[in-house]
Design a protein around this nucleic acid. Sequence first.
DNA 1: CAAGCATATTCCATTTGAGACATATTACGC
DNA 2: GCGTAATATGTCTCAAATGGAATATGCTTG
Lengths: 114, 114
Amino acid sequence: MPSVFEIIAEPNRRAILGLLIASEQSVGEIERQLRMPQPAVSKHLRVLRDAGFVEASVDAQRRLYRLKPDSLQAVDEWLAPFRRFWTAQVDALERHLDRMDQPEEKKRPARRGK
Amino acid sequence: MPSVFEIIAEPNRRAILGLLIASEQSVGEIERQLRMPQPAVSKHLRVLRDAGFVEASVDAQRRLYRLKPDSLQAVDEWLAPFRRFWTAQVDALERHLDRMDQPEEKKRPARRGK
DNA sequence: CAAGCATATTCCATTTGAGACATATTACGC
DNA sequence: GCGTAATATGTCTCAAATGGAATATGCTTG
């Protein structure tokens, strides 16, 4: 049972997850979009399923895979303590830029919010 | 040149990064805190340094390693599109809880916002 | 400059995991 | 039930990366 981090270390698995953001996809659709041999797709999906990142429903002979919520939350939580590290930098940069270009306008809407 | 994701896939490297959140540390300090052979520490630090996650300054014979900002930002950006996936879930749960316990109080302050 | 400590590097053995291909399974239409 | 499409699994090989032990480098002090 590999860790969450090992799961997403594999580029093809990240690609598959990326596809599933849009909507659920069959194995064949993934295979075509990523131009990847079918056994490879199935194997990666197996790993993702075992790790709880995706789930499948049966539609005749196809299996439709979709993202499971929560799966990537663990990564987000691990990241949290580090986040303040770069936000300090970015905030300073933004203040700097704000002072530079249009000192009068109220531009530059919420960059990280929502 | 491994990807950001491969860098943080290694548990010991995550542990080292975790230590450096608190403050900069020498190799020896990391070695002792993580109970890890010194060459292992140096090797992982090498990888982290090459990947731009940490930087070192020289203090006599010791090298003090500290986090570089921005390094983990790439992970955060990759995570962004997925984030809305679980927030939908969490928000629903929060609304549910809010309805349950104190229906009158204005408690439960911003949980994810800074 | 010799000795000693802190860190880096090299070498080797082992393991892990992905890729490629062949093959098994399962469901459908006829 | 047969043939076929869609997906899963098994096997083999190979590359990469980790751990461990020995060794090299570098700085410092006496």
